[in-house]
Amino acid sequence: MKPDTWKSALLSVLIAALFIGVWHLATLPKAATAQSAANDEYAVLLGKTSAKQTGFPPPLEIGKAIVKYLGDPFYDHGPNDKGIAIQLGHSLGRVGIGFLLAALVAIPLGFTIGMSPLIYRALDPFIQVLKPISPLAWMPLALYTIKDSNISGIFVIFICSLWPMLINTAFGVAGVRRDWLNVARTLEVRPLRRAFTVILPAAAPTIVTGARISMGIAWLVIVAAEMLVGGTGIGYFVWNEWNNLALPNVIFAILMIGLVGMALDHLFAMLQKWVTYAE
């Protein structure tokens, strides 16, 4: 086991190095085109004389952006220019609130649906219609009715986190082994106690899997939602740098989005391990 982990880690590093190497070679500046008149005013106005970035940025530029932003993650230069940690904090806050609200609705509702085939069949068409709607399609409607861009962002996270958790909870609850329920019935366990001590632990792995999928989607959606609504958050950061066509900063933001997404997923993986049981 141990040597294998080492090998795979080494391989990962090699792949990264190869990728960056190829990237570096591919973006090497072309042999300086003879700019005969370097002080030509036209060239100056096009920014040719200063170090202007043209074409796809080389890895070194990304490195500079990483050092610049991670070196001072908490700066606050007014409402439209904040450090990367503050932006990520705003995004995580929105995702957290939206996700918690979704969990508060999805898990109890999922329980009800899972325990009653009648309700399941009655609600099924609605779930099937609402599930495939892109969360961003809700945005104009949300802005119009909720009348607050920040809450609209949270609503979008809520609506997209809801379905995987709801469906997985219902599925997990419905799939609890008959024998266990029968044993509970023989022992005359009250319904509420049965829900918490028999069904919940039994369905927990499926529920957490649903939550993990939901969180993944929420993190995907928040970036798009913030690009649309603006103000704060990592999505706004990407949008603001896109305005300036500052690709190194955009790539840096992409990297951060990936890392945070991985961390969130890892958190749920640990939770999953904790609730999993062997039959």
Binding site: N80, L143, K147, S149, M227, L228, G230, G231, N240
Partner: peptide
Amino acid sequence: VEVVKTASWALIRDKVINKE
């Protein structure tokens, strides 16, 4: 005064209507 950068004109319209 806080001057807030906004992503599009449609959003400006909505945020003014919403009193943001």
